[in-house]
Write a protein that binds this DNA or RNA. Structure first.
Lengths: 215, 215
DNA sequence: TAGATTGTTAATCGATTAACAATC
DNA sequence: TAGATTGTTAATCGATTAACAATC
């Protein structure tokens, strides 16, 4: 297996989603063509991605869906249980705590943490503990990935406590761009920025057509 | 002004966020250096981005923050009010409806829509209407951007009704990759996938170090 | 002035795309 | 066989980075 770059890995996960849907519809084989359409890339990219992880196709029959699912699942570690914690149980944090899609995809939210005693609920479906218990919990349960949904101002400190305790991957919803040291991975989802970007891209994209030749 | 590519536009918005924070801290000028660090790019990118929209700097004194904010704001249309609707008022939809950060950034959630009569609440702070009223609302208010937070199965149909009525930009939280026609812009935020990607990148990233020389 | 930083050009890099031989 | 699709190589494209002259 050759070295995979980040964009390939992200695509592999998306192929897998599409393939699971195709399989549930009773499909047996698929062409690079179809998969490319489904995730919005050219067929050449699909074939290249698959050859990167040595998934065999048939010169005329395309790819077998079960084979693809098996190989992609193995490459991505789909067999493993993915345990995450949610830090900050406000509106967004608690919405995520009950998000059905996580369970469907093998993501298990094992606990929430909050600094507000009124939100602590150790016997809830997904228990919410005091945030001071977080480091011990991370260490004892060996949690590696967490979701940050605390206010702006608290985010940086919360993050450093998490990484100190062993968290390596963070999905951050606080509206600040968090960074961390080597070997740690942060994905910032800034919802305000996402919406603004839509407005900006529409505004500036529109402008481009008429102005196009003036450049 | 030269043509801006997508990644430049996305960076401009991020510079603006950082600059607003710097300004609120009393800073007056900033170097391409500093801004690069803040959003994780090299100083050359920052200077290039600014020269694309003709923002002047001082050969030794860096950039004036007020000038930057004014230019970036103008380029991005920060003066305009950004009105959005939220379609699907379940957990995630309603969490977003009350999201403070939107208001702070000039994003105004003007209405929610849901197919469940129990969720309709026309006199709420942000009113929730029956989804059948959505197309008329979009048309009469001239809404161009919407958030989709409906279940998986409903997403495609909801999207087509939205775009037919005039929506041009969509932030989609339903766990399917929506696509739409020319001139429409969709940003898919698949939360399950985001979390999985963290696990995948950690798994495959880790592997890379030891395997690195075997390639 | 000397030192530092911008603004811009050229070089590099990596990813995407095109093309096509292999072959089912 | 003829037609179609894979697997892979080479060409293209675009964005990032390096470098450096201009100049405050």
């Amino acid at each position: 297996m050759k070295e995979l770059n980040k964009s390939t890995i992200l695509r592999l996960a998306r192929y897998l989603r599409v393939l699971q849907k195709l399989k549930s519809l009773g499909f047996v084989k698929v062409f690079s063509n179809n998969l490319g359409d489904a995730i919005g890339v050219t067929p050449a990219v699909v074939r290249k991605d698959f050859s990167m992880i040595s998934i065999p196709g048939n010169k005329r029959g395309g790819y077998n869906i079960d084979t693809l699912i098996a190989h992609l699942g193995a490459a991505l570690g789909k067999d493993q249980v993915h345990e995450v914690i949610i830090v900050g149980c406000g509106r967004i944090g608690s919405a995520l705590m009950e998000y059905r899609e996580f369970a469907k995809e093998g993501i298990h939210v094992v606990a929430g943490f909050d600094s507000d005693p009124a939100r602590v609920a150790a016997s809830a479906n997904v228990p919410i503990y005091d945030i001071r218990e977080m480091p011990d919990f991370i260490r004892s349960r060996g949690i590696t990935v967490g979701i940050v949904a605390v206010p702006d101002a608290a985010a940086a400190q919360v993050l450093s406590r998490m990484t100190e305790a062993g968290i390596q991957g963070v999905l951050n919803f606080a509206p600040v761009e968090l960074k961390c040291s080597e070997g740690c991975l942060i994905h910032n989802v800034n919802l305000g920025l996402e919406i603004e970007n839509l407005f900006y891209l529409l505004k500036l994209g529109d402008r481009q057509s008429p102005v196009h030749e003036l450049t």
